[in-house]
Amino acid sequence: MDAHIQVNNLNVYYGRQQALKDVNIEIPKKQITVIMGPSGCGKTTLLKTFNRFLELTDGAQITGEVLVDGENIYDREVDVTEVRKAVGLLAQRPSPLPMSIFDNIVYGMHIHRMKRDRREYKAAVKHYLEIAGLWDEVQKRLHDPATSLSIGQQQRLCLARGLAVEPEIILGDEPTSALDPISSQNIESRLLDLKQNYTTVIVTHTLRQARRLADYVIYMYLGEVIEAGPAKEVFTNPKHERTKQYLEGLF
């Protein structure tokens, strides 16, 4: 497997409570990996180790390695802002920045000094809004507050904003759970379109969404990875009893 992210002996503790137990997994390049498992099993925690968001939580401790393209992102020499630029995050609830739709997209490009002049920024804003499928809806109101958009539109804006800093990896923590069915479907089809170009890791609590999106599946239970493998194999022929029970909807 051509692994984009490789996790070695990863343990995470919140205070004394252990949230991840000796996780060893590989996440394939330019495919959609879905992390599933019952609530509280550590899906969000695992995702947060990929963009070093765990260090924003007081009392969270981490041991082990997370390699992105073979480089340990927890290495002392690594710049956390570069990690987060390369590993984008689509949060559970969209959170637009307190600025216009246009400036929301520009923000990331601006702090990373990615464009030279206003013309380039304008072109980039259009480009990424088109990718997120939002351009037609907002092209006439680019300078309205981002909060004036519907929740579904806001989540697509957040997707566009994340893509604008040119990440290689997209993380999504139940990115459709706050959305209505049509908006959810919209985000799902964006993610499917994008997978040729990005490595995508999505946490989901709905099995059906997992089946629609997944190329590769990680099943977790109580802080441990129980099973990981290509979606076809895991869904049709789970090796582990717990995975089987989960897929049959027993809990």
Binding site: L56, G88, S95, L97
Partner: peptide, 15 residues
């Protein structure tokens, strides 16, 4: 001040 906001900006690689 919503905490989400800071996280959103940090997730884009802000200092």
């Amino acid at each position: 001040m919503p905490e989400d906001l800071e996280h959103a900006a940090l997730a884009l690689g802000s200092t």
